[in-house]
Design a protein around this nucleic acid. Structure first.
Lengths: 207, 207
DNA sequence: CCTACCGATCGGTAGG
DNA sequence: CCTACCGATCGGTAGG
């Protein structure tokens, strides 16, 4: 096989490059932080000889980060929409929580990146007033829960950010859950989320 | 009052400079991240005209960050030691949790900085085997709790990191708790920690 | 997608 | 505690 065949795959080169860049950037941004990960490192990881190549796919470092964010929000939104056909608030909430845990297990880096970005927004007091679709839908779910169940007297968005932070932390502490099965792990995390959201003990409904 | 009197306090200038640097670095590291905050910004915030002055107090950027860390660990250790004279595991655990919440309320930036550092360690898989005194004491407290109460079948250090992450998140979401009193806020956070640590409902003991 | 380059800023230091 | 400076790297771009 010639060298050029190894360096360049025959079809859909453009799309591959773009997703390669995104994958490498996700990993590096998550591990080293936005400022800690340089464009040059990302360029290397994606297999380019020049930064200029990277800039044919993304206008700036910031745009690259935003592309990651919107992709992740889209994934989370899909999980939430999946629970839309369930009317009963507690069942719907449980379904979405389970869905988020499964998504996070399959996409740990995405989940951790997302949590770190949310923390960054809060700590710099940006107060980005505009709520994403994702946030609006989650707020609505917990709001409906509040009418019938003993949800804590704490702002709904604070409850939600605690859930995400716990989700991400279980991924960061991955090894700590190693001794129990995947299903048991999910049940434990769901149960923890219930402990965070409710003031009194509410049993987790069975599917 | 003259301008010089405002700019320079008469005594203990050296100590003041050091703590001024630490205070500014804590704030900037927390808000912008270690890589995002530059030595030159810290130097400006501390009121120096030159970076060289800063380097008379700290050998490197990393040493500055480590000085912050050890200071914070010392503060947390003091809180834990405060609960050492209580023998009953649940009472001791509750006392320490309350102490940590109060400390975090008085030192929010320190708490958030500490949590972010812990997350950074986990995400880069450093596996810093050496546990600090603080961690050892906390592990011991929860370990003793495990013998008599329904602590979750999850590694103790994972439970502890979840507690810290929730503590920090309540500070980041500060405004979300604005509508309830300080004492009620503490009780809610203690209750959330119980929900995280225990598998079944355990009432929070009264003092 | 590359070569070659830009000004700005980075952490850090020599010498006083 | 300062002036003045270091090499390295930063994000980004002109031109092909």
């Amino acid at each position: 096989m010639s060298e050029s065949a190894l360096l360049a795959s025959p079809k859909a080169e453009g799309q591959d490059s773009r997703s390669k860049i995104l994958a490498v950037a996700l990993k590096l941004f998550t591990v080293k932080g936005y400022e800690g990960a340089s464009i040059d490192e990302i360029r290397m990881g994606a297999g380019f000889k020049s930064k200029a190549s990277l800039y044919t796919h993304f206008k700036s470092k910031d745009e690259l980060s935003q592309a990651l964010t919107s992709g992740i929000l889209g994934q989370i939104e899909a999980v939430i929409i999946d629970g839309n056909d369930i009317a009963e608030p507690l069942m719907r909430f449980t379904m979405v929580i389970r869905g988020l845990i499964k998504w996070a297990s399959l996409h740990p880096t995405e989940c951790i990146f997302h949590m770190m970005q949310e923390q960054k927004k809060l700590v710099s007091e940006v107060e980005g007033k505009e709520l994403s679709n994702t946030e609006l839908m989650l707020l609505d779910i917990v709001q409906q829960l509040r009418a019938q169940y003993p949800v804590r007297p704490i702002a709904t968005d604070a409850l939600l950010s605690m859930i995400f932070v716990i989700l991400a932390q279980t991924l960061l502490d991955g090894a700590a859950f190693g001794n129990i099965s995947f299903d048991e792990k999910i049940e434990q995390i769901v149960s923890i989320c219930f402990g965070v959201v409710f003031n009194e003990a509410v049993p987790v409904p069975k599917i």
